[in-house]
Design a protein around this nucleic acid. Sequence first.
RNA 1: GCCUCUUUAGCUCAGUGUGGAAGAGCACGUGAUUUGUAAUCUCGUGGUCGUUGGUUCGAAUCCAACAAGAGGCUCCA
Length: 652
Amino acid sequence: MMKIALSSTSVRDYPNGVTPMQIAESIDTCLAKEVFSASVNGKMWDLLRPIYNDSSVRFYKWKDIEGKHTYWHSSAHLLAGALHSLYPNIRFGTGPAIENGFYYDVDLGDKFVIKDADFVFIENKMRELARKKIPICRRNITKQNALKLFKERGEIYKVELINKLENCEIVIYTQGDFIDLCLGPHLPNTSYIRSFKLTAVAGAYWNKDKKQKQLTRIYGVSFPSDKELNEYFALIDEVKKRDHRRIGKEMELFTFSSKVGQGLPLWLPKGTQLRLKLEDFLKKIQQKYNYQQVITPHIGNKMLYEISGHYAKYGENSFKPINTPEEGEEFLLRPMNCPHHCEIYKAFLRSYKELPIRLAEFGTVYRYEQSGELHGLTRVRGFTQDDAHIFCSPEQIKEEFVKVINIVHVVLHALNFNNYETQISLRNPNDKLKYIGSEENWKNAEMAILEVCQEKKIKAEIKLGEAAFYGPKLDFLIKDSLGRKWQLGTIQVDYNLPERFELEYIGNDNQKHRPVMIHRALFGSIERFVAILIEHSGGKFPLWLVPSQVVIIPVSEKYNQYAEKIAKKLYSQNIRVVVDNSNEKIGKKIRNNELRKIPYLLIVGKKEENNSKLVVSVRKHGVGNVGVVEVTNFVGDFNNELEKQIKYNSEI
RNA sequence: GCCUCUUUAGCUCAGUGUGGAAGAGCACGUGAUUUGUAAUCUCGUGGUCGUUGGUUCGAAUCCAACAAGAGGCUCCA
């Protein structure tokens, strides 16, 4: 007998070799039906895998991430099983569970291509295999046997994976004819997988390497019942309504033109108003933090980028140089603002007394992003960074870094972004050729970021290999409506560009010293920021951001729809309008300065006692109530009447 | 750039498999009605079917190229 701990208080005796499934059944038959996997002493475990030692056991159901992952991972195997029987000579790559569902990467050989239209056949085969209740069995074999097994089956990708593993026991799972190299855990059999759908097919490079073969990746989702599947797709539809491309079009914020070119956004009048408000907001905050605004040109001599190292790194894959009538004179559309700011620093002899120097610019830059990477406003070829460069002495780095972190927090909170992730991006220590600068500089820069984050108690994920080529960075990431993460704010410590541009200052020892540069952006790119702002707010921006002439406030939720309709009418008459149905007290908002600058408030839904008419009262800022429109009296004529009233009021 | 998919009215989309007079809903306009809180009903405007070329007696539909867009992959200074 062994002791199995099921919680901190419950320990039970079980015979040696008991499986989690048997334990679950002994507790409650309902539990046994709901569990998908378990963990034994913290290690993920199949339900049918025996336990031989005293252990603590936990169960995972659908509601647990671990349970979902087991379910999806086995779904990936079911998909693979179906493909295995449908496509001869198919070779399998990897097939994990992902955040929402699963995929499998396969090499179909030259003869076959999987298209969307094939999904039905594959799904049918999956359904057939699921109904057969095929056991999914775990086995341990030696590395040698594993290599032999997969070589015989022609599974070249699996062989490659096994070769990378240490010389120990290899875990494989069998499911009928289909055998996979896999650590598990898995569902006991295929019949667990009830409701599923293949969602997409895409190319994916083997080993995430562009130079290697592109495999076919098939994505799917699966659920324990149709109800959950339908709910999932309903949710996806709901989420798509928040897409910034859709809302941006509806609200007339921005557009694209194939004639202007891919990835080159055109800001419409309403979008420009919004953008200018955001820029003003940043300018004010930066002024408080003692930044100085500068303006530099959108192009620069090619030499400038050769010095910075950007040309060597990105030149070949970017917009080509612009030639002038002069022989050998070449300019580049600037892909970043740093070199320009370095030259501003260099315009004078600098003293340590001047430092830190903080130069800020809304700098428009142009980068030739791969066409397949372009995406609405989040990834474009021409965009404006809210860029700044801080030139400081090495001793000032930490203090300056902390100040930037503070300013990022202020800005994000002001715009209601309370859920963001932070990420420390360091060099990949195995691929130092990708980076410029000395070992010592990199060490200093990386240490500075790590220390500041530790001192500020910032919980940041550390990512190796994500650093910029000239320095490590701290990034602020926010998710879009589909859960994709985008980098907004970024802070980068850079010892290298000051060296390349030979930046100097005279220290109090009367000697020349090299300053350190901190690159930083709060929004990252204004385009991307607006996109994320739209998706977060669903187009309902904070009131102070909306350049509105009229704010419509329903007094209770009941009147929301009327408020929306009135708004739509006015909007179509080119009266700038916003509906505020946040249900906060109007007085409070006025006190908080949110509504101060907005000339008109329409307050909808005031009900008259006797005849139950809908009443809209018009309030002009500083004047109080200036008129009441009784809605039912103005069917058909309401808009004119309202307009008249607004005109009249504006003349007061 | 690579893989798969999409492009038809202002918007959302049918129609494409099997080639044979360009459709619906919303929006917009018009007329009726004033009632049950901006509704309901009538009629109507609106389209070189992304572009160019090919196959065909005939192409929105089949083929090719190009362009733009979507979801991935790779990339992201």
